[in-house]
Write a protein that binds this DNA or RNA. Sequence first.
DNA 1: ATATAAAAGGATATTTTTGTCTTTTATTAT
DNA 2: ATAATAAAAGACAAAAATATCCTTTTATAT
Lengths: 143, 143
Amino acid sequence: MFSKACKYAINSMIFLATLPEGEERIGLKDIATAINSPEAFTAKILQALVRENLLESIKGPNGGFQISEVGKKVTLHRVVQVIDGDSVFTGCALGLQECTEKRPCAAHHKFKAIRDHLTGMMMTTTLEDMANGIRQGVSYLKY
Amino acid sequence: MFSKACKYAINSMIFLATLPEGEERIGLKDIATAINSPEAFTAKILQALVRENLLESIKGPNGGFQISEVGKKVTLHRVVQVIDGDSVFTGCALGLQECTEKRPCAAHHKFKAIRDHLTGMMMTTTLEDMANGIRQGVSYLKY
DNA sequence: ATATAAAAGGATATTTTTGTCTTTTATTAT
DNA sequence: ATAATAAAAGACAAAAATATCCTTTTATAT
């Protein structure tokens, strides 16, 4: 469904969203540990999230990453879009180049319902929603 | 969502399912042309479908592939399972190793609904359904 | 029997994704 | 100013997915 890079991105964002007011900044190492991801690879992904303003980063001692104001309000949909693009939301499930209402693939209408469901869910689920589950201990970031 | 191999598999199966009674056998080249896929790669995929008895193959002149009795009755779900396994139906969307009702990832319940929807659709959509759309010219296999 | 056709099988190549390592840049504290 | 810290950037490496090529096996037709 999503690339590993995208999963790391989502989990990183959720983790950063769980950090309490005033202690929002945290280093790469701690993020990678918290979500159980390879550190250097995670760094690349965080860079992309910084470029898209979902995160802020500060170099040097006591540096690290923190969720931005934009990032705080963002949905799952946006995070996926930044890392994987929106092919998962709009691409043809059977791989046709041109797959439209007028010239649909064999599974177009069946998959349209699924994709609409997925897109709707992703556009209405915020990082805050998911961070709350983690904070309350009803859901988890690793293992 | 699905690997390219899996898309080629689905499209091949649909194409083979559209062939009329008595003219069911057709060569690799024609299949690859019909679905616009790389020939040799498609061959590998068809071999896997033969191994799983969704297709039959005959070597030599006038040889080729044809859909088996099993294959005729099969659902999209089964084709995907043969090529991609069922991680798309059962795997954790956020990549957690252990993601269960008791120890869910942050998005578990949201994705459960999507996956149930997807799985349900795939288990009830047969190749025949999709072949009919192609035969009637209301859906397409390439471009 | 022989030549031909077509899939099977295996080796190899390419591309994409994932992952690591090293150097550079920015920031902080001494 | 200097040393230390941490992210950014870029080069490189490994693994997986995709794709091709070559040889072998099986069947058909002459």
